[in-house]
Design a protein around this nucleic acid. Structure first.
Lengths: 361, 361
DNA sequence: TTTCCAAATATAATCCATTTCATTGTAAAA
DNA sequence: TTTTACAATGAAATGGATTATATTTGGAAA
């Protein structure tokens, strides 16, 4: 009886092997059969359990290597209820900022044995929800997200993701959501940028402010406002919802008509638009009109005149977000920004190597 | 007996439900139990099989919606042996070219119901192999890849990926590998760029040639060479392995010392380096020295003087690669390049709106 | 009325790794 | 010698969906 069973098992093995030549799918059962042990032992041996004899582990590892075994992670994930995939959701990967955040996160996550699934939302809430559901259905180990502009609040996020998957928000965050958050020091950064403009002698400083449903942009607006206040200047003009070159251009014209001699822009592309607006009105930069952008996009250092920009530290933000996920720690991590002073805001040459004065919040 | 079994089933359901409140994992078995049918019927109903009564299908769909069911794709993938994930492997996602390819591929794949897993190799063969294994282990539906510079040939690729996963190569391809390929028309593009320089009156045109283990760079070199030949000019200087700003700068200096009055560069960053080299030698651009780069990076249109560049069409390449995967068709797809004529190569003003003359290969 | 076919559904195997619980064997303690 | 404890491994259940095969049912044809 026992012999018969062995016989039939052998047959099964032969059949399996003939399949193997077609597609190389070695399972732990194959290894177990080859060694005369059970799949559970093989599983334990391969996953580093202390509950197998060292000798057995070596035999299993050797046989696994010999047969070209590779763990079927799909099956493994199903059983364990989670995968080694971490999802990252960003508005647009081709934005320098986001691709660097991804790079930073990846550098940490890859070393920790995770791989990274990237989703773009194109700033649409609907796409964000879909991405969250996709990630949940794939049972990802965690999600790092920077919200689409179209997302108004965090309620929908939890519905779509569920509450058992760790969530780390970065850059654009909703305070009301649980989990870790990583943000730039937007207030302090905008404060420094504005103060720099004041120190360069600009006296009528407006701002291109971005979207107010983003806490990052809101904080930059407040930093700008506080700097003006602390410097004894009157309230300046605010141009909302300016993110891209075109709206930056239009807002730039309005700012010039309103008498501004400088702008702090919460984005680089809108700042570029403002530069073009100033040029179209015959103003010289930085002599007649000063500009500081935000994000330190590649082009800012290559254009003429080179553009001052408040640099985010996306790579570090990505690293921090990944760390927060790995450590499972809640709370807010603040990544400092750095003001890159270039030609567009520097009419006082002795100030070229300015180091900004931190404000007391 | 039957009654007893039903009873115990009811208990099980109640227990399940109490779990449900903790974590919402509704399975097809739950739906089946609620409706008094079997899981197989529910599965068929939800996957659109014609083998269920319309009435049953509606009841299942309604109950699924009511209970908040979402398919466990991990389990589904395990059974079906493949997933709805398509892997994209690129050297660096923050490169404009690659992030746009990804965007193009994503636009097609998402519409077809796939999601996209992105891997970076940082130009390292080792990382490329690891990415391929990761994707295979996750049983992705297909892989789109642009090889790392470190990858010398295609042999290792098949070993790592296996032969049952569709592979589409783009931009940097190995001809010897099976499967679809999508490439830019590098020969024609470089030919047009070089011819443009000749038409602007440059007579000693060198090239910054990139890495010769990449067929794309090799084709650009040949296009440049053929244009010189067809134009009756002698062989020009070739500077290999110049990709980044620094090597472009060094090669630029050498080219100037060798008497070149223009360069066709197979990359934009190296072209930028060459611009700086020319400036450092006091040459005016484009009057004394002409340059055309390749890739149409964002900064090329924003710098001063703006830089002519041979534009790739990365978004379209991504679309084509995704289409090739979806259609399962082998063969090579060629995406045309477009010469963007800007200031750095235009000393003949009547030529500003040049449209390039195609060459006969 | 019986027979047969097709539609609809049920049963059970399958995908593969993991994990709980049970069993065996061996050495140390009583 | 017997009990105790532990190490090592086996057996079987589990995760959730899919699918090959089997069964039931209803209606048409004989």
């Amino acid at each position: 009886m026992t012999k018969l069973r062995k016989q039939s098992c052998a047959n099964v093995c032969i059949i399996r092997n003939s399949f193997l030549s077609l597609r190389p799918m070695v399972t732990i059962s194959d290894i177990a059969a080859a060694l005369g042990v059970t799949p559970s032992t093989v599983s334990r041996a391969l996953s580093g359990s202390p509950r197998v004899k060292e000798e057995t582990r070596l035999a299993v590892e050797q046989m696994a290597a010999e047969m070209g075994y590779e763990r079927n992670v799909v099956a493994s994930n199903l059983r364990k209820g989670k995968s080694d995939i971490v999802g990252i959701i960003v508005p647009r990967i081709h934005r320098n900022f986001f691709s660097n955040v991804i790079g930073g996160a990846e550098s940490i996550l890859e070393a920790a044995g995770y791989c990274v699934l990237i989703c773009q939302t194109h700033e649409r809430l609907e796409a964000e929800m879909k991405a969250l559901r996709t990630l949940r259905n794939n049972q990802v180990a965690g999600v790092l997200i920077s919200h689409a502009i179209g997302a108004r609040d965090g309620k929908h996020i939890l519905d779509a993701l569920g509450s058992h998957i760790p969530l780390v928000q970065f850059d654009r965050v909703f305070s009301e959501l649980p989990g870790a958050k990583v943000v730039s020091d937007n207030f302090e950064g905008a404060y420094a940028a504005t103060r720099h403009l004041m120190e360069q002698g600009y006296r009528h400083i407006g701002t291109l402010a971005g979207y107010m449903n983003s806490e990052a942009y809101a904080a930059r607006l407040e930093g700008w406002r506080q700097a003006l206040r602390d410097g004894g200047l009157p309230e300046g003009e605010v141009y909302y919802d300016t993110i891209v070159r075109e709206t930056g251009f239009e807002a730039g014209l309005k700012a010039i008509d309103a008498g501004c001699d400088a702008l702090y822009s919460a984005g680089d592309f809108s700042a570029l638009g403002a530069v073009e607006a100033a040029r179209s009105r015959g103003l010289r930069i930085p002599e007649d009109f000063g500009i500081v952008g935000t994000a330190n996009e590649t082009f800012t250092s290559l254009m003429t005149p080179s553009m001052s920009s408040l640099a985010l530290n996306p790579f570090e933000m990505g690293r921090q977000a990944a760390q927060a996920f790995l450590e499972g720690a809640d709370g807010v991590r603040v990544v400092p920004m750095e003001l890159k002073v270039r030609e567009s805001s520097c009419r006082n040459h002795s100030e070229n190597q300015i180091t900004h004065t931190p404000c007391l919040k």
